[in-house]
Amino acid sequence: MASQGTKRSYEQMETDGERQNATEIRASVGKMIDGIGRFYIQMCTELKLSDYEGRLIQNSLTIERMVLSAFDERRNKYLEEHPSAGKDPKKTGGPIYKRVDRKWMRELVLYDKEEIRRIWRQANNGDDATAGLTHMMIWHSNLNDTTYQRTRALVRTGMDPRMCSLMQGSTLPRRSGAAGAAVKGVGTMVMELIRMIKRGINDRNFWRGENGRKTRSAYERMCNILKGKFQTAAQRAMMDQVRESRNPGNAEIEDLIFLARSALILRGSVAHKSCLPACVYGPAVASGYDFEKEGYSLVGIDPFKLLQNSQVYSLIRPNENPAHKSQLVWMACNSAAFEDLRVLSFIRGTKVSPRGKLSTRGVQIASNENMDAMESSTLELRSRYWAIRTRSGGNTNQQRASAGQISVQPAFSVQRNLPFDKPTIMAAFTGNTEGRTSDMRAEIIRMMEGAKPEEMSFQGRGVFELSDERAANPIVPSFDMSNEGSYFFGDNAEEYDN
């Protein structure tokens, strides 16, 4: 993207840094990872977990959730003011799984939030270390993106479920800051804005008074975040219109849905970061690795190297396929839920299948599930090659597409044709070009129609051997075009429920 120079890199967003050079960025990201790792080690000690239990991804998720809940100030305040039966607002906890007599047992633990905050700050040299908290939120978000298709949420806001490739980060909490905003897809931002506008339509006082002023500035800020994701002048001009509207209503909703559809071809720039579970960072720190000293990046080879040398386990339900569970977590670790499966298959070195073909449910185990038949197995999170994460949407291309997802959002900077089903997408653009945004709409449609099938995206960008740390010898991959490109292809993934 041309304006790259004016933006802070995501590592800076990730670490609240002012302008830093590459070495400083690597050190501050490393410091953040160190903090998460030290916190995780301490929690495993508190909970008396064995090494194996500490490497269980379900335990990692519970521990991450506990610290996120302990620092969720708004919710904590709300819980104190609106006490609900049987919930102690000062405590947080969740299921911890232990191996007892050759069987997995679930144990519900409860801790004072104050105590968890103390352990977290102690692991982070006394700081609140917001960057580390956001990092864990993005890992949870990436896992949700890989596990669930947001059909219901899309339909509720009037969008087409086939636009799911635009929904990265749709389950990120509001408090995820600049680093969170960077990884949100165009569809996620559109959905947040539509929800806001709908509230304004239904509630006369939404934009009024002292609160209304705050609401208005939040609305304009979200519009600017979305505008910054678009790469064409016409899309940005249309966002200006939406932002400046005196009284946002149905016309703005129409414009936003139009823009979301246009992003299936004229893709937005959305950041991709490899955020790993805390149970990967903990053992690495415990083994003596100093992330701050060595430096770390979320968008280069580092996460690949770390996963190459990590042992992570997962509980497996009786009829689940461990290899499929591994694929789910591998995609989440690489922030690749909406990437082209052919690119992923090449990088991973084994075939990556669409969601609907995987015999696996989510990673988390519900409290009512029976533990008797639970097994555990090693997650295979290694890769054959590594590639640089991208934040450009890439230019655009036609490809055989599917009944489910009709476009992709690249996660890796790797040369390819970008699949999208042009006739299906263009069919949504018939007729409606009147109104105050008509010239911009016409211009956007013209650009979409001009998108050429034979153009290559990320020209000359390749993948790298894991021994090639400096990215000196790019390998331009070859793809098996007979395979499906979309992950949520004609899909039956479970729906995400809060």
Rank of each mutant, 00 (worst) to 15 (best):
M1C: 10
A2G: 01
A2E: 04
S3E: 00
S3Y: 15
T6I: 10
K7F: 01
S9A: 15
M13R: 01
M13D: 15
E14D: 12
E18I: 09
E18T: 12
R19Q: 06
Q20T: 02
N21R: 12
N21D: 03
A22N: 04
T23N: 12
T23I: 04
I25K: 13
I25R: 14
I25L: 06
S28W: 01
G30M: 08
K31Q: 07
K31C: 12
G35N: 09
I36M: 15
R38M: 10
I41Q: 13
Q42G: 12
M43L: 14
M43Y: 08
E46D: 10
L49E: 02
S50W: 00
S50V: 05
S50F: 13
D51V: 13
Y52D: 03
G54Q: 12
G54D: 12
R55W: 05
R55M: 08
L56I: 12
I57V: 15
Q58H: 14
Q58A: 10
L61P: 06
T62E: 13
R65E: 12
M66Q: 13
M66F: 14
M66N: 12
M66E: 07
V67G: 11
V67P: 04
L68W: 09
L68G: 10
L68A: 10
S69Q: 04
A70C: 08
F71W: 08
D72R: 14
D72S: 05
R74C: 02
R74V: 12
N76L: 13
E81P: 02
H82T: 10
P83D: 00
A85E: 05
G86K: 10
G86N: 15
K87N: 03
D88N: 15
P89W: 14
T92M: 11
T92E: 01
P95W: 08
K98S: 13
R99Y: 13
V100N: 11
D101P: 14
D101H: 05
D101V: 10
R102Q: 03
W104A: 06
W104Q: 02
W104V: 14
W104L: 07
R106H: 08
E107Y: 05
E107C: 05
E107Q: 03
D112F: 02
D112T: 04
E114I: 10
E115R: 11
I116K: 05
R117L: 13
R117A: 05
R121F: 08
Q122F: 14
A123H: 06
A123V: 12
N124Q: 09
N125C: 15
G126W: 07
G126K: 03
G126S: 12
G126D: 03
D128W: 01
A129S: 12
A131D: 02
G132Q: 11
T134P: 06
T134M: 10
T134N: 10
M136L: 14
I138V: 06
I138R: 01
W139G: 11
N142L: 10
N142W: 10
N144D: 05
Y148K: 03
T151E: 11
T151G: 07
T151I: 01
A153E: 06
V155A: 08
V155E: 02
R156C: 07
M159I: 13
D160M: 12
R162I: 09
M163C: 14
C164F: 00
S165W: 00
M167A: 05
M167D: 05
Q168R: 09
Q168A: 15
G169K: 13
T171C: 14
L172T: 04
R175G: 02
A178D: 12
A178G: 08
G180M: 09
T188A: 14
M189I: 12
L193M: 15
L193G: 12
I194M: 11
I197S: 12
K198E: 03
K198D: 01
R199T: 07
R199K: 11
I201P: 02
D203N: 08
F206Y: 12
F206R: 05
W207T: 02
W207H: 02
R208G: 03
N211E: 08
G212N: 08
K214Q: 14
T215E: 03
R216P: 06
A218Q: 09
A218D: 06
Y219C: 08
Y219E: 10
R221E: 14
C223D: 09
C223G: 08
N224R: 06
I225M: 11
K227Q: 13
F230C: 13
F230G: 01
T232A: 09
T232M: 11
A233P: 15
A234K: 05
A234T: 02
Q235R: 03
R236T: 11
R236P: 11
D240I: 11
Q241D: 01
Q241G: 07
V242G: 05
V242H: 05
R243V: 08
S245D: 01
S245E: 09
N247W: 03
P248C: 15
A251C: 12
A251E: 06
I253L: 13
I253Y: 07
I253R: 04
E254N: 09
D255M: 06
I257V: 08
I257T: 08
I257W: 09
F258Y: 09
L259H: 06
S262T: 08
L264V: 08
I265V: 15
L266A: 05
V270W: 02
V270G: 09
A271S: 13
A271P: 08
S274L: 09
S274D: 03
C275Q: 04
C275I: 14
L276R: 06
L276P: 10
P277T: 12
P277A: 11
A278L: 12
Y281T: 09
P283T: 12
V285P: 11
S287G: 06
G288M: 11
Y289F: 12
Y289Q: 10
F291Q: 06
E294N: 15
G295H: 05
G295I: 11
G295S: 04
Y296N: 08
G300F: 09
G300L: 03
I301G: 09
D302C: 12
L306G: 03
L306C: 08
L307K: 06
Q308A: 08
Q311E: 00
I316A: 03
I316Q: 02
P322G: 07
K325A: 04
Q327V: 10
Q327A: 02
Q327D: 11
Q327W: 05
V329Q: 03
V329L: 14
W330S: 09
W330Y: 07
M331R: 02
M331V: 08
A332S: 13
F338M: 10
E339G: 05
E339S: 00
D340M: 08
V343W: 01
S345L: 06
F346L: 15
I347D: 04
G349T: 09
K351M: 05
P354E: 01
R355G: 01
G356A: 09
K357L: 04
L358C: 09
T360Y: 07
R361V: 15
Q364G: 05
I365T: 06
E369T: 12
N370G: 02
M371I: 15
A373R: 14
A373F: 14
M374A: 02
E375H: 04
T378C: 05
E380P: 02
R384H: 13
Y385C: 05
A387G: 15
I388D: 13
I388H: 08
I388L: 08
T390D: 02
R391H: 04
S392L: 05
G393I: 03
G393H: 04
T396V: 03
T396P: 03
T396F: 12
N397L: 07
N397I: 09
R400M: 06
R400H: 12
A401P: 12
S402Y: 10
S402N: 03
Q405N: 02
Q405S: 11
Q405I: 00
Q405D: 03
V408P: 06
P410T: 04
R416G: 03
N417M: 04
N417S: 09
P419L: 13
P419I: 10
F420Y: 12
F420A: 14
D421N: 15
K422H: 05
P423E: 02
T424F: 02
I425C: 15
A427I: 07
A428N: 11
A428C: 15
T430N: 15
T430F: 00
G431S: 10
N432S: 12
T433M: 06
T437D: 15
M440W: 14
M440V: 02
R441G: 02
R441Y: 04
A442Y: 02
A442G: 14
E443L: 02
E443S: 08
I444Q: 14
R446G: 10
R446I: 05
M448R: 10
M448K: 12
M448L: 13
E449Q: 09
A451H: 14
P453Q: 14
E455G: 14
M456I: 01
S457W: 03
F458K: 00
R461V: 02
E465H: 00
L466M: 14
S467G: 12
D468N: 10
D468F: 06
D468S: 07
D468R: 00
R470F: 00
A472L: 01
I475Y: 12
D480L: 02
D480K: 14
M481F: 05
M481D: 00
N483C: 01
G485T: 04
Y487F: 06
F488R: 00
F488I: 09
F489H: 14
D491C: 13
D491Q: 03
N492A: 10
E494R: 10
E494N: 14
Y496R: 06
